[in-house]
Simulated scan of single mutants.
Amino acid sequence: MRLRTDIFVSALLRRVFARGDFAAVEAKGADEAGAIFIRQHFRDGLETLYGPAPQSLFDEETSGERLFEQRLMRAEPDKVREMLERERKFDPDLWIVELEAEDLGDIVPLAGGRENPL
């Protein structure tokens, strides 16, 4: 069974704050099953965008988890904003979470078991 989106986001925010970094919800979507997009802000003004991983990347062990993939890496904020606007037209119930952290470590679970490169 998959964790509700609002509970997942709440836990994500707590983990970020516990590390001494900052996080905020930019857009709140459906509480039960809204898709989550994560904007990682860097001090140099660039951003990395994470979105839900495609279902084809899930296996039996990860079928109930939320996994993410990088959609844009260290891109200009305008490009990130444009991509999120396109996604919002497709799915108005999505969540957007902003993180100000140089290193996400294991906070954002990436598909394919890859470690977070940042």
Rank of each mutant, 00 (worst) to 15 (best):
L67N: 13
R15D: 09
F22G: 00
G112V: 05
A111V: 04
E100M: 12
F22W: 14
R88Y: 11
A111Y: 06
E65P: 00
D59S: 13
A18R: 15
E32V: 14
S56V: 14
R86C: 07
A24V: 13
L72I: 04
L72S: 06
L13T: 04
E102I: 00
R114C: 01
P77C: 04
A33I: 03
I36Q: 02
D91Y: 02
F8A: 09
H41Q: 02
P92I: 03
R4F: 10
L72E: 07
E47S: 03
M1V: 12
E65L: 10
V80T: 10
L46K: 12
D21N: 13
I38V: 15
E60W: 09
T62G: 07
W95T: 06
G20N: 02
E32C: 10
M73Q: 15
R14L: 14
P92R: 04
D106F: 01
R2P: 12
R66S: 05
L72N: 06
E98W: 00
L104Y: 05
L104F: 00
F17P: 00
D103W: 11
A35T: 00
L84H: 04
P54L: 09
E69K: 12
V16T: 07
E65G: 00
E115W: 06
A27K: 09
E60K: 12
D44Y: 10
Q40N: 06
F68M: 06
A75T: 11
P54Q: 06
T48S: 13
P52V: 07
R71D: 01
G105Q: 05
G64F: 14
I107K: 04
G20E: 02
L110K: 05
R74S: 12
E85F: 10
P52W: 00
P54E: 04
F17G: 08
H41E: 00
A30T: 00
Q40G: 01
R86L: 14
R39A: 03
W95V: 08
A27D: 02
R2Y: 09
T48P: 06
L99G: 01
L3R: 05
L104H: 11
A111N: 08
F68K: 07
R88E: 11
R15M: 08
E60Q: 10
E60L: 12
E115R: 15
D78K: 13
D93I: 10
E85T: 05
A101M: 11
R88G: 04
P109R: 01
G113E: 12
F42K: 11
G113V: 11
Y50M: 08
D78G: 13
E115H: 11
D44H: 00
L46Q: 13
F42A: 12
P117Q: 06
L13V: 04
I96S: 11
D59T: 14
L104P: 00
L49S: 03
E47Y: 02
L67A: 08
M1C: 03
L57E: 12
L110V: 11
W95M: 05
A53V: 14
Q40P: 03
V108Y: 02
I36A: 02
L49V: 03
F22S: 15
A23I: 09
Q55P: 08
T5N: 05
E98R: 13
R19A: 10
E98C: 04
G45T: 11
G34H: 04
E60I: 13
Q40H: 01
G29D: 03
L84W: 07
F90D: 13
D106A: 08
E87I: 05
V25H: 07
Q40V: 06
F37I: 04
E32K: 15
V25G: 09
A27E: 03
E82Q: 08
G34L: 00
K28R: 15
D59I: 13
